[in-house]
Design a protein around this nucleic acid. Structure first.
Lengths: 368, 368
DNA sequence: TCCGGAAGCTAATCCGATTTAGCTCGGGAG
DNA sequence: CTCCCGAGCTAAATCGGATTAGCTTCCGGA
């Protein structure tokens, strides 16, 4: 290994090996046979490269070949949604398998910034751009995104666009949530938390809300069951869930099951149930969406439909790197949302007969 | 705007403006005066650039100038620590202020991969590399990292190294945690969860554990107070905290305060307290570290010392971009950890007199 | 009338690879 | 004794800018 005063260049390697730069280039590109270069020369070049610790300058290569082995990953917020990091993780893994790195940027939803960052990435000659949203929603495709290869991740275009999209299969997840309840015998007193019971009673622009609700309603009505009610909420945080659940608990028919539209709403719902002396998984069922870590911290552990962040990220990069040209408008790849079955569902017989059966105050040995 | 068959080059702009490429270059670089180029020519060039939608090819520029306006951000895991995303966020913001983008990679702690990714980044001529850990720990500096500018983020080098480090001020945070308890009158029955009560009784390699404990002990003993005990845990998850807290609750002196070494342990501790009929903030105090979102979801809300992820990320990039040369060994930038005071601390008088005072079963109107 | 110098541009080189288009040499065919 | 061909390499162009080193004009002063 020689001193690293600047980096060793191909010319330097060639000189050491006593060949032309051309020859060195061909050897190191593995094109020896094709270029009819002798094995001895190959050996000399390789040795020189090894001895000098030669590494090709990717910038220079990129200029000539036009390929940077770099993908842009542009998202609205890396930060605020905790496990959205898995989106990046999946993308990173897929990228690495193709020997690519990820250039990232965060737009904070600002169209000006979106445009700026798309340009900054294209200026760096990225091979393509993944435009990601941290929760599934409709987005207006930023200016300039379509000037080169790109994919929407966890997002759908507001208007038809020649761009592929990768999203979780929210519709099927909604169906699965409903099936879980039907399977354990629930036929009435089923409430949704986060959206209203009717189609259209959803927070604006949230794909997940629309599709989950549609899936739920489809399966339930297929079994002749109707949602008993719901609470449309803008802010899907624990506090809002708590208040909404308390409200729903006063309604008729008495709630037997809650379908919470994310785990944070479930946290609030759990608190409401606990405060009103009900036991989750015994008196009332809770099914949730997202499967954030908190889902398995709760007691009893929460049954939830996971957002497959990692797979979403992977898929986006794979689509990007495989795609030869512009795709037919409206190409959407849907990734299944796995059901994580845990302890928050009760068989409905128990529920029916004794709403507060099993309630003997808080559990535990030291009970006062 | 012309059709984007390939990109418009500077040569094209120059031709349109009827000047040489040199002139166009100087104008667009804002060096008109310096190069004594007339205002008319400047106007022509600028107009041509505007009309063609010219954007400089950063790859080409980089090759000539050696500056890529890109920083490498290499971390062990982007994914598993939810709010570590804020590290990236801060880095991203600081980078953007300097017109840089971030090239990211994830090493999963694999030294082979670390080396590979450091090289992949250097091959792309990054201006510097931020080597980040998602929780504060000692790391062995990966091979090749010191070949160019670099900073450790949320990590300290195991052996002395000419590299700067940016970490949260865990020692001072430990002190703050102890002060919170002293201030509200706690002088006995203080237990730590996650580490033992003695120095050295900490999970291996975790800086946070060592320094927090040192800070706690320093302030307590300054007030003539000793830790009553603790529970050294490898796995700082809710379940482990739950078990540990249940165990500590059987010890003498009876626990009046828990210092949990992260919020997940606090989640478990809350559950243990609830299961044993104690009320957090009334019977027992809990102070925590990290301030993950769950801290404010808990009831009562948890007092916690926040990890300033955003500021850490920012600082790392700023240090990287400002640093002219190799730094003196052991340069460490410590970022304060803000105390988020919430509802989990009780004034000690109440605690003293009536350990289970205020316990009337679960709160709420519907109690059975 | 000649010269120096500034004003206003441009030709040419460089960055470090990849790639096209040869060039040289030796041997067998004619 | 040429000519041709293939084996084995290399010279030179190229990618798209940044930068150095001039090269013309024109004007004023001697």
């Amino acid at each position: 290994m020689l001193p690293a005063v600047g980096r060793v260049t191909l010319a330097e390697v060639a000189r050491r090996a006593g060949v032309s730069q051309t020859t060195a280039s061909f050897v190191l590109a593995g094109r020896r046979e094709e270029m009819r270069i002798s094995a001895q020369v190959e050996a000399r070049v390789r040795q020189a490269a090894r001895e000098t610790g030669y590494r090709p300058n990717v910038v220079s290569r990129s200029l000539r070949t036009g390929t940077t082995q770099t993908i842009g990953f542009l998202s609205d917020t890396v930060a605020t949604t905790p496990f959205a990091g898995h989106l990046i993780w999946g993308a990173l893994d897929a990228a690495r398998e193709h020997e690519h790195l990820l250039l990232i940027g965060e737009t904070e939803g600002d169209p000006e910034l979106e445009k700026e960052l798309v340009e900054a990435m294209r200026d760096r000659q990225v091979e393509g751009i993944v435009f990601a949203s941290m929760y599934t929603r409709w987005v207006s495709v930023p200016k300039g995104l379509l000037d080169g290869p790109s994919v929407l991740l966890n997002a759908l275009p507001t208007r038809p666009c020649p761009i592929a999209a990768v999203v979780p299969d929210e519709l099927e997840a909604g169906r699965a949530a409903a099936r879980v309840l039907l399977r354990s015998g629930h036929t009435s007193g089923i409430y949704v938390v986060g959206v209203g019971a009717r189609p259209g009673q959803v927070p604006k622009g949230v794909v997940a809300a629309v599709e989950r609700l549609a899936g739920i309603r489809e399966v339930l009505s297929g079994a002749g069951v109707e949602l008993a009610g719901g609470a449309l909420l803008r802010d899907w945080q624990p506090q809002a869930g708590y208040v909404a659940a308390l409200g729903l608990l006063k309604r008729k028919p008495e709630p037997r099951a809650f379908i919470c539209f994310n785990d944070r709403l479930s946290v609030g719902t759990y608190q409401a149930l606990q405060d009103t002396g009900r036991k989750v998984g015994k008196d009332v069922s809770v099914v949730s969406f997202d499967d954030e870590p908190v889902a398995s911290w709760l007691r009893p552990q929460l049954t939830s439909l996971a957002i497959p962040h990692y797979e979403l990220g992977r898929k986006a990069v794979e689509v990007l790197l495989s795609k030869p040209g512009p795709v037919p408008e409206g190409t959407v790849h849907r990734i299944p949302m796995p059901l994580r079955e845990r302890e928050s569902i009760c068989p409905v017989e128990a529920t029916r007969k004794h709403p507060l059966a099993g309630w003997r105050g808080p559990r535990g040995p030291l009970r006062g």
